[in-house]
Computed example of a mutant assay.
Amino acid sequence: MSERSAAPGALALVESLVNTVDLESGSDALDTAEGRARFGLAQHEVEQARELRESLRATLLAHAGHPPHRAVTPLGRLLAGAPLVVTVDERDGTAALAPADRGPLVSRVAAAVADALVEGTWARLKACEAATCHWAYYDRSPAGRGRWCSMQVCGARAKMRRYRAK
């Protein structure tokens, strides 16, 4: 959907998970073996991944100042059970939070959120305000006030609707 570049660092995982469904067409990458493989998911883990995805989307909408798209399990509740450990690079001494178990998607997402919090990038990952889109994007605008995944698509549609309403 978007012409924007991917979110930085570990946030790319969060962005790509949220963007596995196209709300306008209804297609869901998690319905395909290839889509599940991108996240290391078995078929029986798909419903949990969808719940996580929609909780992330609600949080990203909040980052952009919008209400949740629907009732979801709070993201904090989903991430609370994800065990993280502190890792230290023996070469340069840098430390990071990492999933205690590399397998579960929720642990990898929790580690990505923790990294983004430390780097100060978490609040810039947002969801498009267009109700038929809600695509995740990283807001690189200087003031951090981006509203749409794409000015050429969703932004242009919103401006045209406002113009016609006048």
Rank of each mutant, 00 (worst) to 15 (best):
2 S>H: 01
4 R>I: 00
4 R>P: 01
6 A>Y: 02
9 G>M: 08
10 A>C: 01
11 L>R: 06
13 L>Q: 01
13 L>Y: 05
15 E>Q: 14
19 N>K: 07
20 T>Q: 07
24 E>W: 06
26 G>M: 02
32 T>N: 08
32 T>L: 11
32 T>F: 05
35 G>I: 04
35 G>R: 13
37 A>M: 15
37 A>L: 03
40 G>D: 10
40 G>Q: 07
41 L>M: 03
41 L>F: 02
42 A>E: 07
43 Q>N: 09
43 Q>E: 13
43 Q>W: 14
45 E>Q: 07
45 E>I: 14
45 E>W: 11
46 V>A: 06
47 E>A: 10
53 R>P: 13
54 E>I: 14
56 L>M: 05
56 L>F: 11
59 T>R: 12
59 T>C: 07
62 A>K: 14
62 A>P: 00
63 H>A: 12
64 A>T: 08
65 G>D: 08
66 H>F: 14
71 A>T: 15
72 V>H: 05
73 T>H: 12
73 T>C: 13
75 L>K: 02
76 G>I: 06
77 R>L: 14
81 G>S: 02
81 G>M: 06
82 A>H: 02
83 P>T: 12
83 P>D: 13
85 V>T: 11
86 V>P: 03
92 D>S: 13
94 T>E: 07
94 T>G: 15
95 A>F: 10
96 A>V: 04
96 A>I: 02
100 A>K: 01
100 A>L: 04
100 A>N: 00
105 L>Q: 11
107 S>G: 14
109 V>H: 05
111 A>Y: 04
112 A>D: 07
117 L>P: 09
117 L>C: 04
117 L>S: 06
118 V>F: 05
124 R>A: 06
128 C>P: 12
128 C>R: 03
129 E>Y: 00
132 T>P: 06
132 T>F: 12
139 D>G: 01
140 R>S: 15
141 S>M: 13
145 R>W: 06
146 G>I: 05
148 W>M: 00
151 M>D: 02
152 Q>F: 00
153 V>E: 04
153 V>Y: 06
158 A>C: 01
159 K>E: 00
160 M>R: 04
162 R>W: 00
165 A>F: 11
165 A>N: 12
165 A>G: 11
166 K>M: 13
166 K>Q: 08
